[in-house]
Structures are given as C-alpha cells and as structure tokens.
C-alpha cells in the first residue's frame, strides 16, 4: 500500500539523510524535530525546505518552471533523475567526488534481502550486498524494492512505478 504523503513530506524523506550538511542552519533541538517529521513522512513548509536545501530548489525551479505548488512527481523526478544525473556527470560541486562517495550520494533502488532490527541487508542487481538503516520504520519484507539515500532506506517502491521510470533497468 503506497504511503500517503504531502509533496513537501515526500521531498523531505529523501532530503533528511543529507540534513547534517545544513551546518549552522539548525540547532540540535530543530534536528530532533526534523528527524521526527522525516520518520512520519511529514515535511517542513516549502519556505523552510527552500532555506535548508537551496541548491535542490534552484534545480527544481529550473526543471519545473515553477516556484511553488510542486507535486510529488516533481520531487520524485528531482531525486530519482536529476539529483543522480548531477552526480553522475560530476556537476555543481561534485566535480572532484570519487566513486564511493558518488554512489553513496545517489538515490538507488536495491532489493531487501534480510532484516536485523532497523538494519537492513540490501542487494543490487550488479553490486554487492550492503546495509541500510530503516530510519522510517517501514514495514519491510525480503524481496521488497526500496529506495536508499546515504545509507537511509527512504521508501518502499512499487515495481510498476520503478519500471515506469527505469524501463531498461533490471
């Protein structure tokens, strides 16, 4: 059953794993509050998100031609396609990034292999097994496709949605 998320909630569940890079913009108390919101799939306001993640919203504005009223599809296209494209092409600050960190920064779509509490073993079609944190306490089962960003399992992915975005993927 797909989750019911607001567009900004959807943006934020992907952005939260990078929140530690908002140094100086949030206090430890604000971090705890934001973590709770991410776990629940609730996002801060668009204005707050724009202040926390200005580079992302510059790209989203450019891609959508809008400055507000973004949809989940707008944000999904950013995280799944544009964000990964920027990293793959080593653009906009990623010029010197090495392969390991690039792969970590990209949003990826592995399959759950095993569960040990909140630590999840995941597999990639062409890569080794890795571990990820089920930071949102999703009801995962082996065989479930998920998205992962910086070691954080972000959401459960329907195969139909995945293949619509990546028709040539395994």
């Amino acid at each position: 059953m797909p989750e019911s998320l607001t567009p900004e909630g959807y943006f934020f569940i992907y952005a939260f794993p990078a929140i530690t890079h908002c140094a100086g913009k949030i206090t430890p108390e604000e971090f705890s509050s934001l973590e709770s919101q991410a776990v629940l799939g609730k996002g801060p306001s668009l204005e707050r998100l724009r202040r926390l993640f200005p580079n992302a919203f510059n790209r989203i504005e450019h891609l959508t031609g809008k400055i507000e009223a973004y949809t989940i599809e707008d944000y999904r296209s950013y995280w799944w396609i544009e964000h990964n494209r920027i990293i793959d092409h080593r653009e906009k600050g990623y010029e010197q990034v090495q392969e390991e960190e690039a792969e970590l920064c990209k949003v990826q779509f592995p399959i759950v292999k095993g569960l040990n509490g909140r630590v999840v073993t995941i597999t990639y079609p062409t890569g080794p097994e890795r571990k990820g944190l089920n930071y949102r306490n999703l009801p995962l089962q082996p065989g479930q496709r998920v998205s992962i960003h910086k070691g954080h399992i972000v959401e459960m992915i329907l195969e139909s949605v995945y293949t619509a975005y990546f028709p040539h993927a395994h």
Binding site: F16, E101, L104, R130, K131, K150, G151
Partner: peptide, 22 residues
C-alpha cells in the same frame, strides 16, 4: 551511534546523522 560497515580504530569513515555509512 551505529555503523553500517565493519570498522576499526584508524579507519576513515563518512557519517550521516550519527551513523557511519561507509
């Protein structure tokens, strides 16, 4: 407070939200 990979003293690591991710 958590590591997703096996680590030892002296290793260089990347942390995300109090978790060693690589």
């Amino acid at each position: 407070e958590l590591s997703l990979v096996d680590v030892a003293l002296g290793d260089y690591v990347i942390i995300s939200n109090k978790m060693i991710v690589t």
